[in-house]
C-alpha cells in the first residue's frame, strides 16, 4: 500500500462527515450480503413477517443449512476441483511459458510473443459457439475436464504477459549462479523464479480462481449431469427447479461463498492488489 498521509482538513471534526458518507455507501453495498445472512436463518413465515431485521438467535433455523448443504456441497466440491486444478495448471504452464520468453531471446520467440499478444486484442465473444462444437468433437462435453482445460488455456495469455515482465526484473546473476551449479532450466524456475515471485503468483492465482469460480455460461452449456454441476450451473438449476424456501436458498448462496471468504481472510492484501491489476486484463 503506497497510501501517503494527506492533510486535507486541519481539524479532526472535518473527518467525521467523510467517514459517515463512506459507511453509508458501504452499508448499502453490503446490504445484499446482510440480507443473505439474515434470511438464511429464517423460514418463509418468519421472513414474510419480518423482512429486514435478523430474527432472535433462539429462532434461528439451522436446518436451512442442513438442507442447503445437501443440495449445494456436491456442486461446491466440483467447483473446487475445477477452480483449483484450473488455477494450478494455468500458473504452472504460464510460468514455463514466461520463463521461455524472459530468459533468452530464442529464434522465433518474437513471433511467438506476437501470437500471444494478438490474443489480448482479439475478442473471444464468438468463441463460445465454436468451442462448444470443438469440445463435442473432442468428446469432452459433460466432463469437468473441459472446464479445467478451458480455465488453463483461458489464463495463459494474461499470466504469461504479467509473469514475463516480472521474471525479466529478476537479477541475471541469480540465474547465472544457478547455472554454474549445474542447475537445469527447470531447476532454475523452481529455485530462482518461484521463490522470488510469490506475491505476483498469489495475485494471479486469486484472479484465476475468482474467474473460474464465477463462471457459469461455459459450465451451463458443457455440463448435463447434475452430479457434475459446478456452483454456477448448480445455482441456476436451484433457481429454476426448487420450491422457493428462501431461507434454504440463501443458506445455499452463503455456502457457495464460503471458499471465497476463506481465501479472502488469508490473502486480504493480495486480493486488494489483484483487483487493482485485474483491470489491465480488459
Amino acid at each position: 500500500m503506497s497510501a501517503q498521509t494527506q492533510s486535507v482538513g486541519k481539524k479532526s471534526g472535518r473527518e467525521f462527515p467523510k467517514h459517515l458518507a463512506i459507511w453509508l455507501i458501504l452499508g448499502l453495498e453490503l446490504l445484499p450480503f446482510y440480507m443473505m445472512l439474515q434470511i438464511s436463518l429464517k423460514d418463509n413465515p418468519t421472513f414474510i413477517a419480518n423482512t429486514w431485521l435478523p430474527s432472535l438467535p433462539r429462532d434461528w433455523v439451522w436446518g436451512n443449512f442442513l438442507h442447503a448443504g445437501k443440495l449445494i456441497l456436491p456442486f461446491v466440491a466440483n467447483s473446487i476441483v475445477v477452480s483449483v486444478s484450473g488455477t494450478v495448471g494455468c500458473l504452472f504452464l504460464a510460468l514455463l511459458g514466461a520463463y521461455f520468453f524472459a530468459r533468452y531471446r530464442m529464434p522465433f520467440s518474437q513471433i511467438l510473443w506476437g501470437l500471444f499478444l494478438l490474443l489480448m486484442l482479439l475478442p473471444g465473444i464468438a468463441n463460445i459457439v465454436t468451442l462448444f462444437a470443438l469440445l463435442k468433437t473432442m468428446n469432452l462435453l459433460n466432463t469437468l475436464w473441459a472446464l479445467i482445460i478451458l480455465a488453463i488455456s483461458g489464463g495463459q495469455v494474461f499470466c504469461i504477459y504479467v509473469l514475463r515482465n516480472f521474471i525479466e526484473e529478476i537479477p541475471r546473476d541469480l540465474f547465472e549462479a544457478a547455472e554454474m551449479d549445474g542447475a537445469s532450466h527447470f531447476a532454475q524456475l523452481l529455485n530462482v523464479v518461484i521463490p522470488m515471485s510469490g506475491p505476483i503468483i498469489g495475485t494471479l492465482a486469486i484472479l484465476q480462481f475468482l474467474g473460474s469460480w464465477n463462471d457459469f455460461l461455459m459450465p451451463l452449456i458443457i455440463l448435463r449431469d447434475p452430479e457434475l454441476f459446478t456452483i454456477g450451473v448448480g445455482l441456476i438449476y436451484l433457481d429454476g427447479e426448487y420450491v422457493k424456501q428462501w431461507g434454504q436458498i440463501m443458506a445455499a448462496f452463503f455456502l457457495a461463498s464460503v471458499p471465497l471468504i476463506i481465501i479472502f481472510l488469508f490473502t486480504m492484501k493480495l486480493f486488494v492488489r489483484g483487483l487493482s491489476s485485474g483491470a489491465v486484463k480488459g
Binding site: L112, F116, L122, A126, G154
Partner: peptide
C-alpha cells in the same frame, strides 16, 4: 519445450475457435 504446452492450448482453444 517450455512454451509448447501454452502454445498448443492457445492455438486449440483460442485461435481455432475464432
Amino acid at each position: 519445450f517450455f512454451i509448447i504446452p501454452s502454445l498448443l492450448l492457445v492455438a486449440v482453444f483460442a485461435y481455432w475457435p475464432t
